[in-house]
Amino acid sequence: MNLINHLINGIHVGSIYALVALGYNMVYGIVKLINFAHGDIIMAGAYVAFFALDAGLPTVVAVAASVVFCVLLGVVIEKVAYRPLRKSAKISLLITAIGISLLLENVAQKLFSATPRLFPKIISGGFYLGDRQISMTTIVTIVVSAVLMALLTVFVKTTNAGKAMRAVSEDTEAAQLMGINVDNTISMTFAIGSGLAAIAAVLYCCSYPQVYPTMGALFGIKAFIAAVLGGIGSIPGAVVGGLTIGIAEALTKGYLSSTWADAIVFSLLIVTLLLKPSGILGRKVVEKV
């Protein structure tokens, strides 16, 4: 192994973190909620994909089923659990999110048991770049993530729905006065975040082929760290944070030891927050009155 390989691995894992971090950041940007149940959406998406593939459905159908299920799950959670609390204290919302996370993990445990399922291999092969071997999984992960992030950026910048998202995240009341329907905009944000999480779930399972009820917990936390590191609420921040965490992790595993990887990731967060509390790309708007 050498530096280039470690970097490629880092970008591979980092892209998945970034996809999940986008969900955290979009939701935070719009309802100022750290959606702790977001990691468990990944788990739900992984189970749906697993059972669909297990039933012999084609990969594309399995991925689509996973996306549809996660989108519905995300939207329903927002409607049932978060919306009634929107005007309550933020801490109630946060505790509810933790509650939903525990609920999802325990329902999964009840339904599917704690025994890990082996996710089937859906991407195989690889090719040589010079004498360096790159797996097809890596290529697919990086390309799919990059395309999704590009699409999301275009969506947010140019479409009316994307503009509504930006307006609501900057000033909800003013957005309403522009004729923007806030409920729909929030639902859409959860839908997009959860859909991205479903795809992240499948990509994750291609590299770490185990599906179990608490798989989203640590992964979700790390993606959350990526979100905070990049700048909570910022879409490019999620991408930068995700890649930073992924690369830091890969380099630690390559040059130090796997056991240090999580410790390094968490330390990176602490150091960044000490130096720049708003995260790498987090910014404070200059306000002149």
């Binding site: 930006r166 307006a167 708007v285």
Partner: peptide
């Protein structure tokens, strides 16, 4: 005023024309 401070003048006007 509650204008969108991080957006440009024209983007603000564009938001006004959302409907």
């Amino acid at each position: 005023r509650r204008i969108f401070l991080s957006m440009t003048v024209e983007e603000n006007l564009d938001m006004g024309a959302f409907t």
